[in-house]
Amino acid sequence: MKIIEAENLKKDYNGFSAVKGVNFHINRGEIFGFLGPNGAGKTTTINMLTGLARISGGRVKLLGEDYTRNHKKAQAMMGIVPDESNLYEELNGWENLCFCGALYGMERDRREKRARELLEQFGLEDASSKPFKAYSKGMKRKLTIAAGIIHEPEILFLDEPTTGIDVAFARQIRNLIVDLHDRGTTIFLTTHYIEEAERLCERLAFIVEGEIVREGTVEELMREAQGENIVNFTLGGDFNEVKKEFKAVFPDYGYRIGRDSVISVHSPEAFSLLPLVQFFEERGLPVYEAKIARPSLEEVFVKVTGIELKKMQNQKEGRG
């Protein structure tokens, strides 16, 4: 079931086209991700979906209902975590959470109960009475996520949830995201970390310069880039001795001899492994390892977008 749909969604800033008519949807319960470099239009898209940016063209729907011109009803079902924490600096963690709950009309008992639960779940009990301005960057991000889900939204928007956060906190945050997903929250996240997208998202869209260049499940995206199937065998002997025979038995397969007795067998068709393993074993070459080589999402991304990874990282780091 589609929870959010964007049809031909556009955003112009005084003639500059930041988002150029994107089409995508988010299924209920999934983690959907936008992966793209800085300036691709990720934040702008989130802002259009949540009501912080006026939509220049196209439509947005929530559960099939058009809300392009009026976001207020839809906002009740959304939780929004911006790329930079925007809670109240002078309020402490507890006050911030309770206030955010109140904004969504939660009664006092309920919001206080939720605030307590969240502070515990996020490991922030000790910081609950400290003012937000005294928090570290990672703690700030965690509290901002907690504030985004205090009202138990149907769908959570996470804009670059781990950008600029140190490794330990980033891991905690990723675990929290998986946790939320397990509890049934639909999540739309943006990121410029390919690894993060691969690890967390079920479906992904690559966005570059305001356009979605590819969209699909992680599996689908991988498959597309996979020109051929490759299996790497680690053998306990010299492959050269059986080279000729191999060609005769498996005329459709190609091979490449790598280092350390590894040979890569490749084929445009899917493999059947057993005949290969038998072939080697029967000729006195024990098979220690047979590994299907999958292209990484990284390779797929580079292939599809033509953007080098280093460039993505540098751009981001260069900003802050």
Binding site: L52, K72, N86, L103
Partner: peptide, 14 residues
Amino acid sequence: KSRSFERLLLAPIS
């Protein structure tokens, strides 16, 4: 300026 106002704009109140 501190962007906390965005939180209010995103809340489901007119």
